[in-house]
Design a protein around this nucleic acid. Sequence first.
DNA 1: AGGTTTTGTGAGTGAGCGCTCACAATACGG
DNA 2: CCGTATTGTGAGCGCTCACTCACAAAACCT
Lengths: 199, 199
Amino acid sequence: MPRPSTADERRRLLLPTIAQAFARTGYNRATTAELAGACGVPENTLFRLWGGKKGMYLAALDHLYERTVDGWARYLAAPAAGPDAASAASRLLAYEGEHYGEHGLYRIIFTGLDEIDDPDIKKALRAMYRRFHAFLTERIAEHRGEEPAAARTALLAWAVIGMATVAGIGRELRLVTRQQQRELFGEVGRALLDLHETP
Amino acid sequence: MPRPSTADERRRLLLPTIAQAFARTGYNRATTAELAGACGVPENTLFRLWGGKKGMYLAALDHLYERTVDGWARYLAAPAAGPDAASAASRLLAYEGEHYGEHGLYRIIFTGLDEIDDPDIKKALRAMYRRFHAFLTERIAEHRGEEPAAARTALLAWAVIGMATVAGIGRELRLVTRQQQRELFGEVGRALLDLHETP
DNA sequence: AGGTTTTGTGAGTGAGCGCTCACAATACGG
DNA sequence: CCGTATTGTGAGCGCTCACTCACAAAACCT
């Protein structure tokens, strides 16, 4: 038997660095040479591990999403403070008001939106948004005490995603302060969760 | 005296085509050769008129924004139907629920977000978002009958922008139907305008 | 007409970059 | 130790693409 491959292990090891590089520079400006440099490996290695730049991007996107979701799961698993424990949805809003953007997930998404005519990238983004939206919809339905999620709940989930997105853009452009981000998630986001029919 | 320049005129004439091309393909994938082809002029001409690809993009961004704002102004100038005429803010929401995305403005913005480490592009996007947000904030303040716009009003304006943004992304990825877009602007957007303190 | 500038033409260039390849070195299993 | 696979190395290839240049033609002014 030949020498066993450590490829999986290496992928796991290098992915955070690659994701960070993509998030920092964007898809196009991140050259494969730079990625390799950041990882401290020869360019060749990256191509062997992911087949091409697009493969690296797709892996990085997936990595950042998983990382974000894991962060939520850990946060929600921790016992809520006190008996007046808020719903998972509103706890997540508070959490993201504080931490949104730390992983650079939104940055890597924007960079993908520019490549959206590539079918593979479009598919990956679509899958990610779909999962994200489904997750949020469930949390919001729980919060509102709805059993099967109503159509309106799905709309609210989109609105919350939009709010997060604009927070990312706004902070990037220095038009939204960190305090405003907190208020956006905290006040407006919270209000969205409890939105009823307008009279 | 020499031959007078018709450069301004030509810029005005070619800009819609260039903007459309950028919106269709994105910044990076739109090659200067393609832009020239779409315009039916030699590549050289575009460089003489705008100095470079970045200049073409900045002009296109500005053009689409102006065009959008003009569309609003025209729509608002038309007399509101009946005596129960809604506020400008809510009329705009209804309008955008129907027409959002038609000019491709959001597409050209996404494409710019990928180039955001370029200071010129960042500055242009920042200026555009700032104007957009200021405009919306005023309309919302009017709607709510606030004299000087409250801090909360600015937040609501961001939320509305976010809602529009996510509508663009969602429709692009075929996760949001046109009907859902209408409801997003119509129901959720309308509710945002009237959001009070949560009890 | 003549002078001055703009416009059309078309070839070309130089740099960046994704990706490849041949080969040597290394590490594992039998 | 040997066969087989994976890794390190480094040069380089081919292509795309933003951008340029030289020159001829046209258009406007006085």
